[in-house]
C-alpha cells in the first residue's frame, strides 16, 4: 500500500510528446546546423573527426549520420556552428511495409551490436515514466518471433554479425529495421576497422535512421513513430543555405 501511495503522490510525469512539444531543459543535446561561414568553412570542416562536416563555396553542410557530438565545431573556434535544439531527427529510407494495422501496436526487439552503453541507456529510458512508450502501443519483446521492429544500436562488431543476421532472419514479415545512433548509421568513431564496419546497413536493410551520439530518448521515440507511419521523417543532413 505504501508503494501505491508513493506512486500516486508522484503524479503524472509523462511527456506531452508526440501530441505536443517537450521543452524541458536537458532532454536533448541538439545537432549542429549547416551555415555559410566563408573562409572559416574549410578549417572548421577539418576539425570534424568523423567527416560529418563538408564544405563547398564557404558553406558547411552536416551529415547527421556521422556526427558524434564532439563539439569541436562549437567550442574553441572563432565562428562556431549553431546547434539546433529539438529531437525529431529520424530519417526514413523507403516505404512503410508494416502498414496501418501496426500503427498503434508494435513489438520492438532491441539488439546491442557493440554499443558503448549510451544508446542502450537512452532506449532504457523509454520505459521510465517520463517517456512511457507503452502509452503509444510500443512494447519491448525479448524474442524475434514476436517482433515487428528490430532496433539496432552499435556499429556491428565482428562477433555480433552472425547473431544479428540470425535474429533478423528469425523475425516474421512484415518487419522494419530501425538503426539508432551514429555508430549504427556510420560506424561512428569506430569505423572502419578489422572488427567494425560502417554500421547496420552493411548487413541488413535499414528502414529508419536515428542520428545522435547517443540520440536522446525523444529522438528514438520519433524513430519508432516514423517506422509505423505516425510521424513525418526528418532530413539527415543540414545544408547550410
Amino acid at each position: 500500500m505504501k508503494w501505491v501511495a508513493s506512486g500516486l503522490r508522484t503524479g503524472i510525469k509523462t511527456t506531452a510528446y508526440p501530441r505536443g512539444a517537450e521543452n524541458a531543459p536537458g532532454v536533448t543535446p541538439g545537432l549542429p546546423l549547416g551555415a555559410a561561414l566563408g573562409e572559416h568553412a574549410a578549417t572548421l570542416a577539418e576539425r570534424c573527426p568523423t567527416h560529418a562536416l563538408a564544405h563547398a563555396q564557404g558553406k558547411i553542410s552536416v551529415d547527421y549520420r556521422r556526427c558524434v557530438h564532439c563539439y569541436r565545431c562549437a567550442r574553441g573556434v572563432p565562428q562556431p556552428l549553431a546547434w539546433k535544439p529539438g529531437y525529431e531527427w529520424a530519417g526514413s529510407r523507403g516505404g512503410n511495409e508494416l502498414g496501418a494495422p501496426f500503427a498503434r501496436s508494435i513489438h520492438v526487439l532491441v539488439v546491442d551490436a557493440g554499443d558503448c552503453g549510451a544508446c542502450l541507456n537512452e532506449v532504457r529510458q523509454l520505459n521510465n515514466p517520463y517517456y512511457n512508450m507503452h502509452r503509444l502501443g510500443f512494447f519491448i519483446t525479448p524474442t524475434p518471433r514476436h517482433a515487428d521492429v528490430l532496433l539496432v544500436v552499435g556499429p556491428v562488431t565482428d562477433h555480433m554479425r552472425a547473431a544479428l543476421k540470425k535474429i533478423y532472419d528469425a523475425m516474421p514479415t512484415p518487419k522494419r529495421v530501425v538503426a539508432v545512433g551514429a555508430c549504427a548509421l556510420s560506424g561512428g568513431v569506430f569505423a572502419e576497422s578489422f572488427v567494425c564496419g560502417k554500421g547496420v546497413a552493411e548487413l541488413l536493410p535499414v528502414d529508419v535512421e536515428v542520428p545522435g551520439n547517443p540520440p536522446p530518448p525523444l529522438a528514438i521515440l520519433h524513430g519508432l513513430l516514423v517506422a509505423v507511419g505516425r510521424a513525418a521523417p526528418a532530413a539527415l543532413a543540414s545544408s547550410g543555405s
Binding site: P25, V27, Y71
Partner: peptide, 19 residues
C-alpha cells in the same frame, strides 16, 4: 536517473558529458 541525465544535459550540453 532521467532527472540527472537532464541536469547533466542542461549543465554541459550533453547528457553523458561528452566533449
Amino acid at each position: 536517473e532521467e532527472d540527472l541525465l537532464r541536469a547533466s544535459g542542461e549543465l554541459t550540453g550533453h547528457r553523458y558529458l561528452f566533449g
